[in-house]
Structure formats: structure tokens, C-alpha cells
Amino acid sequence: MSAIQLTANGLALGASYALVALGFVLIVNATGAVNFAQGDLAVAGGFLTVALAGVVNLPGVVLLPIAMVAMAGFGVAFAYLAYFPLRHQPPATVFISTIAFGIVLENGANGLFGAAPRLGPPLLPGGPVELSGLILPRQSLAIVAVTCVLIAGLQFVLMHTQFGRRLRATAQDAEMARAVGIPVGAMIAWTFALAIGLAGAAGMLLSNQFFIAPGDGTNLMLKAYIAVTIGGWGRIWGAVAGALIVAFFETILAVLLSQSAAEMFLYLAVLVVLGLRPRGLLGETIGRRA
């Protein structure tokens, strides 16, 4: 039971980190700037579902798309507030702007909801699932399943739709994309919408399994940053692999060693990856970033 639960918890944690990390990758590809508010935006998504669950009596699986759409809309507003006015400034200006926005979000959540951690709605009601004699944690399985669906959907949109091709064209060479008639500004706004919609999903998934508190954003952002650094900037699967590696260190390695040692080895692993493969385990497709 413990080993299965440990694996399920690790996968659920890794899946949530992956959604935050994916948002990171999408924005850095499209704009060349790192969004340091990504963790706080995930927390905002978590608090949004906490608030929604208090108003409407709907299961989490129904609240999830509502929260994602609302956060996507917020993502567009975020782009126009924190990115577009500063996009012609040096990259450091944009990342300082996102840090400032993150602090505003954290304090806003603190003011609106208070400092106490909150419990979000479960994706599916009910206790553990029994399958062929094995007892499996329902929420962890639901988180992993939903994350798989979201990642597969994102991959499909990016690789197999005209909209996705436009997004990728903008990410690869904005000037060339503009020259062939792609509305680059709109594509960047859509990228923010997608990235922050995913952050919202991560926040909701985390809020039931691991609670959500206004100050959680910094840690989430750090984990996402490490995941992307290990996995590789610029690639979806790199971010996912990196997030699972972070979760592996936090769960499996923490059993074999200790939590402190596991964390120390995680950061040592980051240093090793940076030394041997500066572009991450699965490479990267872009050059400069903030």
C-alpha cells in the first residue's frame, strides 16, 4: 500500500509541477522572458476554485474547465499589464515586472482569503479506489489522468492545428511570423492565456491534495524553474520529464535517504545538468532568455 501510495503521490505532485512548468516554457518560447509570477498564478487558480466551490455546488471536475477559462482570460490581462508595455525594454525589466505582479497576487490572496491554507474541492468525490485488491488514492489518480489529458491536448493543439503552427511560428521567429501575416501580438496574448490557464489547473489540482496558501507561489515557481532547467528549455516533454524528476527526488529519494538529503541531491543534480548539458536533458530550441 505504502509503495503504491508513494508512487501515486509522487506522480500527482510531478503532474502538478509539470503544468506550472509547461506554462513557463510556453511563455519563454513566445517572448524570450521568464514569467516569475507563474507560481503565484497557479496559487491564484487554486484560490479561484476555492472561491467557486464556496459559491456553486459543482464537482471539481466541472469546476476545473471553468477555472482554466477564467485564468486564461486573466492571462491575457496579465500579458497586457506585465509584458506588452515593457516588451521593448531589456529582458530584466520584464522579469522584474512579473516578480512584482507575483507579489501583488500573493498579497491580494492574503488580503482576500487570509493567510490560512485552504482546501480546494476534490476532482472526484469519494475515497480510495480498490482495483484488483490494490487500494489506490483516487485524487492522485485523477490528478495524473487530468494532467495527461491536458498535456496531450496541448501537444495536439501545438502540433496539429493551424493555431498551434502560428503559435510555434511566433515562438521561433516573431519577425518572420509578422512578415508572413501572423498577428504576433495576438499570438503572444494567446500564449499567456494558455500558460496561465494551465497554471490555474495546477493550482486547482494542488489545492485539494496539498492545500493552497498565499505564500505557496514562490516554492511552486522554484520547482517549475528547476524542472525546466533539468528537462530542457523550449520543449514540452522536457518540462514534463523535469517535473517528474523533481517529484522523484521529493518522494522516492526522500524515502531512501532523507528529505534534506534528497533536496540537496536535487540541487546537485541541477548543477550537474547545467555543467554537462546546459540546455537541459532534452535540449532547447531557443537561445537567449532572461
Binding site: 505504502s2 501510495q5 508513494l6 503521490n9 509522487g10 505532485l13 494542488l206 496539498f210 505557496d216 516554492n219 521529493e250 518522494t251 522516492i252 526522500a254 524515502v255 532523507s258 528529505q259 534534506s260 534528497a262 533536496e263
Partner: peptide, 18 residues
């Protein structure tokens, strides 16, 4: 065992205590 304040998964520590 000492645990970081931002830790989310306590199962490893609980398993070892058991």
C-alpha cells in the same frame, strides 16, 4: 527527521517512521 517548511509530500517520512 527534519522537514522543509515547503514540503508537500510527507509520505516518505511517515513510511520511515513506520
Amino acid at each position: 527527521e527534519g522537514l522543509d517548511i515547503n514540503l508537500k509530500d510527507f509520505l516518505p517520512a511517515l513510511i520511515k517512521a513506520k
